[in-house]
Design a protein around this nucleic acid. Structure first.
Lengths: 363, 363
DNA sequence: TTTTGTAATCGTAACGTTACGATTGCATCT
DNA sequence: AGATGCAATCGTAACGTTACGATTACAAAA
């Protein structure tokens, strides 16, 4: 079928491209227009064409117009790899995301994040690569691999822990990055985070407004920075109300529905059960509802519940639940924005963003 | 518990001080080892080093060993772009995923898919790039852009429609791809799909076993191939039971909780309300539960419900609901496997996979 | 001895892009 | 006239890799 035409004649190094046995790698790739073709067509040099396409001030406006017209006509798109090889820039951002192989549903909560990131990245002319890690993967090693592969212009890291070594590593290696979450290192680094302290504080206050004094709190892993912040906000609200903290009401490891259900069931069975519950997220809520249902208890009457609900799941359950939400798509967008400005100006001021939760009015 | 600093920030953006260290763009990139360095160090040619690293039969075994040792010692990692430029292969796969900006929760259902894909891709030595599209984007144009950018060795396309033009386009352009879903074109192409016909058939049968004759069916968009299959399975079960199909019981556009709730509420208000419901997915279920709750009706008593529950969400609700699930992580893995074999052997037999749903035993 | 064969290695030329210094042509100033 | 300045364009050399043909060295066959 295809007849291969030598496009190199003008440059003297003629070569015959033989097509053997119908099988060839990628027709698209082979027939893609490139700078050389456009240059030949317009009797210009490759250099001038290259410059014209990026509106170089050295090129005559009329030439720029001609070049752009030709580029459009032949469907020219810059070759990513040629450019990356030359410039060292890849126009790719990588998000290192831990996947919970324990429970897929908990991963679900971060899809809006991915959505926000991909869309913002696309808009900024980057493509977004997802590097998902399993609980078996060492987070530091994952970052190191990204560093070595240097296939991204910037990195998004998530799930920060106390004194997170990745932050130092990335700063040392001068790799542009942005963190979703904060750590307690004494260095400046760009991050976007949710104000979990404030959210937990307000959630606890809302439960108190309902008359609750024995308030249970669900947390994820204890090392998790977000969990630490939640605990801190909870503690602040309790201290203000003069209620001593009962450690038995604080549950760790609430990343599955099962763990949440089991934990809350045990609490309900105790001699002095909680009357209020602040959930870690929608998953924790479902587990708690399960435990309540098993005992014939009604949320909003027997136990007051407040939960994060960025997915609008809780709002749709036929149960009376207090909800607050965080615009996770917005967080994703913001992450990319910050990362982008970091790439453009690596020595500029370190940008940090703290996103507030939105509580529904207390009926 | 760690000490979390940085309590000073307000809402929105906050700028902190810049840590101005004086250095250059990307230290990592500059100091990366390459073939030339290794060659120089061992007094070999770049060619031999290149071949040695891929166990070329032309290279002496002892040389291979020396080269590999040196490569390891200096931390050599092949430069992606150099290789891609030369070979035309990128070691990147791209998944074109439509994002539902209408309702994030519905996107959530496809995270296990992403998880499966990323992990399988990593294992196979590819990185996975997510190209997410909004409802505004033209699916065909999105694929075309991917084709032109030729930055991926293979494509995953989803959400197939009748006579999907993307399949022909990709076949014509000889771009390796795999579809999640099927279309009714008379050509062979690789796909992985869920057997929605069978699932809907069995779901309907289960509702009949509960004594239901007026069975409502939720569908997504009518053009959607998955929806068409569901309708077909539903129709088969109804025909077998000799029950005429009442079009008013079939709901389209059930991709949000709101639409599901509104639709089911209207059905319940009708003169001859349904006694059974087959949900489109977990979202549709939540909407339906909402409608039931509003009317004080109980699922499993007043109305029997069967739903897809790959996320295990439905199983955890305190309500009696029949569930079936599909291993979406497995589907994701399978997609990548098929795509990979397609890339390796573009002219080999076209692989197709049909994944069955798993029903929970009918109590 | 010369020839032939073979295993191991090398050199060069691409892939498409951009950076940089060189080179035109032409108008303007001594 | 000759020199100078400037705008516009060009040529070459990379970036790191791989494909391909060429070139060794050396042993075995003639």
């Amino acid at each position: 079928m295809g007849v291969w035409i030598d496009r190199d004649v003008e440059f003297g190094n003629a070569m015959a491209v033989s097509k053997s046995a119908g099988a060839f790698a990628n027709e698209v790739g082979r027939t893609m227009a490139n700078l050389k073709q456009i240059a030949a067509e317009l009797s210009l040099s490759v250099t001038t064409v290259s410059r014209a396409l990026k509106d170089g001030p050295e090129v005559q406006p009329s030439t720029i117009a001609r070049v752009k017209e030709a580029a459009k006509r032949v469907g020219y798109l810059p070759n990513h790899h040629g450019r990356a090889l030359k410039t060292g820039r890849t126009q790719t951002l990588t998000a290192v995301l831990p996947m919970e192989t324990r429970d897929h549903l908990s991963d679900l909560l971060k899809l809006p994040l991915i959505e926000g990131m991909t869309l913002a990245a696309r808009q900024a002319g980057y493509s977004l690569s997802i590097y998902s890690t399993t609980p078996d993967d060492d987070p530091v090693e994952s970052v190191q691999r990204q560093l070595q592969a240097r296939s991204a212009d910037g990195l998004v890291i998530t799930r920060l822990v106390s004194a997170d070594p990745r932050v130092k590593l990335l700063l040392d290696q001068r790799m542009p990055f942005v963190a979703f979450g904060r750590t307690d290192l004494d260095v400046a680094y760009p991050y976007v985070d949710v104000d979990n302290e404030q959210i937990a504080y307000e959630a606890t206050r809302r439960l108190m407004d309902k008359g609750c004094r024995r308030i249970a709190l669900q947390l994820l892993v204890p090392e998790d920075q977000a969990s630490a912040m939640r605990l801190s906000g909870y503690g602040r609200a309790m201290a203000e109300a003069g209620i001593p903290i009962d450690q038995s009401l604080i549950g760790h490891g609430m990343f599955t529905m099962e763990s949440s259900a089991g934990w809350f069931d045990r609490l309900l069975a105790s001699s002095d059960p909680p009357t209020g519950l602040a959930c870690a997220n929608e998953l924790g809520l479902l587990g708690a509802l399960h435990a309540l249902g098993k005992r014939g208890l009604t949320p909003g009457r027997d136990v007051h519940i407040v939960t994060r609900d960025s997915t609008r799941l809780a709002r749709f359950l036929p149960a009376k639940i207090g909800v607050h939400s965080v615009d996770m798509t917005g967080v994703g967008r913001k992450l990319i924005e910050v990362l982008e400005s970091r790439i453009i100006n690596p020595l500029g001021p370190v940008e940090t963003v703290l996103v507030q939760g939105r509580f529904e009015p207390a009926e």
